[in-house]
Write a protein that binds this DNA or RNA. Structure first.
Lengths: 189, 189
DNA sequence: CACTGTGAATTCCTTCACAGCG
DNA sequence: CGCTGTGAAGGAATTCACAGTG
């Protein structure tokens, strides 16, 4: 979240920002920001604030986003297509390096500039420097695909289906369920 | 999250579930589940566990999801199309009741069974019983659309663009940034 | 007997207040 | 003088341990 904020500030060409200014934008309070950043060392200059460009770079390094990260996208349906064309990944240094699908009608087609491959070829990601995967397949297929990805050496999976994936401890999974997030809203209304 | 879990268990026709069994599936620990559910009253039967169907219905009531909720989708691009066709909303009782876009090429076209309307018509949601909106527009346009939605009486907004929306306190916003979630993974790898 | 519901203990996170520095 | 960095205080969430119940 902080990396995204500092990246955006960089494009606005603001050289520094104080914890108070940043707190207003992120809807946090200033001590929270100072405490969070201080966990990873001293970022700011007393009397001035945080240098935008330098802080962005340091956060990138901490998050291991300073080297471009390749990700595989599994599922070339409507959601997969939307993700493949999403410009926001660049902010975090991600590149969709491969797209897989199991439908004959999709395999061989191009999405953006990438040729869709058969899911049977997921095993090839190990030798292609891909350790991250985005799962955009129906919930029923998610676990089977996750198993293939784990076997192929994936270390991180972003799961976009509403189900819990069973993976070895060494693999990190983040699940996003859009319907569930929407489901939190009526309670507050 | 609990509602999703209990809804899924219902389709598996399991009549009851204990906090221990549920903890294994959700990767939580049993006291956490008991404490969470107890905040809203007694759900379970001692010696047995939680009745699946009844608990799902009670959670639905608490979350105000027992009456069907209409949502407006703004943005009929690739992401909007993916969302319009996503089957997961039914679990939470949501129905996409209107779709808006500002591109002439999209207006009048149908997505699923819904005719895309001009964003200029967002004001009509007030009289159509729509209080929820899903924002699937580019980040640059998000704030302007949010303003229109708020003016039209929207009470909850699910924002899928990587930006902070300024809205009155009475409006609840949930933001999902897929790229940011992906950005958390390399740190753990 | 198995499991829930819940006060108490613990741990974690947030906020405060101010020393210290550019 | 303004703002960071940080120990200390305060508050919130989690976990424990067990009484209570079908």
């Amino acid at each position: 979240m902080y990396l995204r904020a500092f990246s955006l500030l960089k494009t606005e060409e603001q050289p520094t920002i104080s914890s108070r200014q940043l707190a207003l934008r992120l809807h946090l309070n200033p001590p929270q920001i100072r405490k969070d950043l201080s966990y990873f060392g001293a970022f700011g200059t007393r009397g001035i604030g945080y240098p935008v460009a330098a802080t962005a770079e340091r956060l990138r390094g901490i998050l291991k986003l300073d080297v471009p990260q390749k990700a595989a996208l599994v599922g070339a349906g409507r959601l997969g297509n939307a993700i493949a064309s999403y410009p926001g990944f660049a902010t975090f240094g991600f590149e969709i390096a491969a797209i897989f699908d199991n439908a004959d009608s999709k395999i061989g087609q191009t999405v953006g500039k990438i040729v869709v491959e058969d899911t049977a070829r997921i095993g090839t990601i190990r030798n292609r420097g891909i350790h991250l995967a985005i799962l955009a397949v129906p919930a029923e297929a998610a676990q089977a695909v996750a198993d293939k990805l784990v076997a192929a050496g994936a270390k991180g999976i972003l799961n976009l289906s509403p189900c819990y994936l069973e993976v070895p401890r060494r693999v990190k999974v983040v699940t996003i369920d859009i319907a569930m997030e929407l489901g939190t809203l009526p309670y507050y209304m």
